[in-house]
Each structure stands twice: as structure tokens, then as C-alpha cells.
Amino acid sequence: MLQRIQSVYLFICVITAGALPLFLNLWTNKAKIEVMFTDYIAYVILFASSALLAAVSIFSYKNRQNQFVINRLNMILNFILIGLFVYHSLTLSGEAQVSEKGIGMLLPIFSIVFLALANRAIKRDEDLVKSVDRIR
């Protein structure tokens, strides 16, 4: 059952949270030094746990309700990550510290979109199974 569309969405989420942060910078400070997610341990933990939750969700395809809950928890984790990015960029003293935001700050938003699409597909599968059970 790994060929379902929600597995594809979750695999994209694993790539977005697990591999892309290694190559994309979060921001560039005024000294033109690129700040990566590996510079902050909280970001490393949150990105890694988001990728791990998505991978666990891919392989829990037999229990759709559990998969749905894992995806919801992953969304909450990504919202926390967005909150940390916003907090970090707003508490610094304006353009004196952070001069250019990187694409890496948008990765949790992409993950949330793919998680929402996966949850929608899981819900559709669950509704299909319930409708078949009614016929019997």
C-alpha cells in the first residue's frame, strides 16, 4: 500500500524536512554569512523529528487513524518551527542582524501543505472503506 497518493505526499514532506534544510540557508546576516539550520540545535531537533514523524507515518499505512494523528502532530511541530523562525527574526534588532531571509524559513510551510494534502487523502480512503462496509 505504499503506492497511495498520501505516501507520495509524505515522502515529499520527508524530503522537505529532512534533506532540503541541509542545502538551503535560513538567512544571511549583515556580514554576508549564511546561517544554516545546523547552527541552532533546536532547529536541528525540530527538522529531524518532523522528517522522522513523516517517515513513521508513511509506514503506518495499515492504521489510517493513527496515520492521521501522526500527521496532525507533525503539523503542530511545523507550526512550532514557524513560530521559532518568526520569533528569531523579530527579536533581533531589525536589519542590523538579519539582512536577508533565506528560502529555508519557508520549508515548514511547504511541509504543512503536503501534510494537509496527505490528511485529505487519508480521510478520503477512510470514507471509502466506511462506505464499502455499509454495503455489506
Rank of each mutant, 00 (worst) to 15 (best):
R136D: 08
I33L: 08
F68S: 09
I112Q: 04
S111C: 12
A55I: 05
L115R: 02
E126P: 13
K32P: 07
F85M: 14
G94D: 09
I58W: 01
L10M: 14
I112L: 06
N119M: 13
N71L: 01
L53R: 01
F37A: 04
S99T: 14
L46I: 15
A96L: 12
I135L: 13
L53T: 02
Y61W: 02
R120W: 12
A121R: 11
G94I: 05
R124M: 09
D39T: 14
L73V: 04
F110R: 02
L128M: 10
D127R: 08
E126I: 15
L107E: 06
Q67S: 14
S7Q: 02
L128F: 10
L53H: 00
I76T: 03
D127N: 11
D133S: 09
L77W: 01
E100F: 08
F11N: 07
L46W: 13
A48P: 04
F47S: 01
T91F: 12
I12N: 04
T28P: 15
R120Y: 14
L22S: 09
S89L: 14
E95I: 10
S57I: 01
K30E: 11
L22Y: 13
Q67V: 09
N119Q: 14
Y40A: 09
D127T: 06
Q67R: 07
F59L: 03
L106A: 12
F11L: 15
F37K: 02
L92M: 11
N119G: 12
G83A: 09
D125G: 05
L10S: 10
K123W: 05
Q6W: 10
Y43A: 07
Q3C: 02
L115Q: 09
I112G: 04
N25I: 08
A118H: 10
R4K: 15
L10Q: 15
R4N: 11
G94F: 02
I41Y: 01
V69F: 08
A121N: 12
D39I: 08
T16C: 01
G102Q: 09
F85W: 10
L73G: 05
A19V: 03
T28S: 15
N71V: 01
R64C: 06
L26A: 10
A116L: 13
I41Q: 03
A121D: 14
V56M: 14
V69L: 05
E126Y: 10
A31W: 09
N71H: 02
